[in-house]
Amino acid sequence: MSNTHKDYAGAKLGMWLFLFTEVLLFGGMFVLYAAYLHEYRADFHVGGKQLDVFIGTLNTVVLLFSSFAIAAAITFIQQGKKKLAVNFTYLTIACAGIFVINKTIEWRAKFHHGIWPDSPHLRELSHGENIFFGLYFLMTGLHAVHVIIGAILLSVMVWFMKKDVINQQDFVKLENAGLYWHIVDLIWIFLFPLFYLVL
């Protein structure tokens, strides 16, 4: 009997279980959003109108494209086209960078208007607006942290591909990193309408 073995189905099962935990982590925040939207519908409307729909939309497009890029990278590694796989992973990381830069521009504009957690301006506004912006910073902030973690994870995958740890025969690591990237994208797909569109 040997004690080294590869179990792709097991590795993917483990990853899916981990994705469940991510969904539930954000789930707690979505529950808060739902409860406070119910309580402060009018204030949420006022707050939502102040968000930058252009940057939000741009970031949505960037993330959707990045999901395509990482999916393409996985397909390429399966076909043995490692060069392309590496390049498309780089593309995904670049998208993550663009997303974070856009987010920074957006947040800086908010700070410029005197809106940050517990700011004097926010304390003068209504309770509902304070909660709205509090949720806005916490939820998009937690999401941005996940984008950064995802980018780091994908950088490690590039390194693995260059070291030939990931190759045409053994690419489950890249697949799992791709799954993680998709969940990061998916969470944004829910955050975007909730903050920028429906209010």
Binding site: T21, E22, V23, L24, L25, F26, G27, G28, M29, L32, A35, Y36, E39, Y40, P117, D118, R123, S126, H127, G128, N130, I131, G134, L135, F137, L138, L142
Partner: peptide, 29 residues
């Protein structure tokens, strides 16, 4: 467990940032 994770993170955020999500003085519940 992830729900506990986000809950204690929120306490941390409340203490550090003072968002007020659970503070009635700031509209929290």
């Amino acid at each position: 467990t992830p729900v506990l994770g986000i809950t204690v993170l929120l306490i941390f955020a409340e203490r550090v940032l003072g968002v007020g999500l659970f503070d009635p003085n700031k509209g929290g519940d």
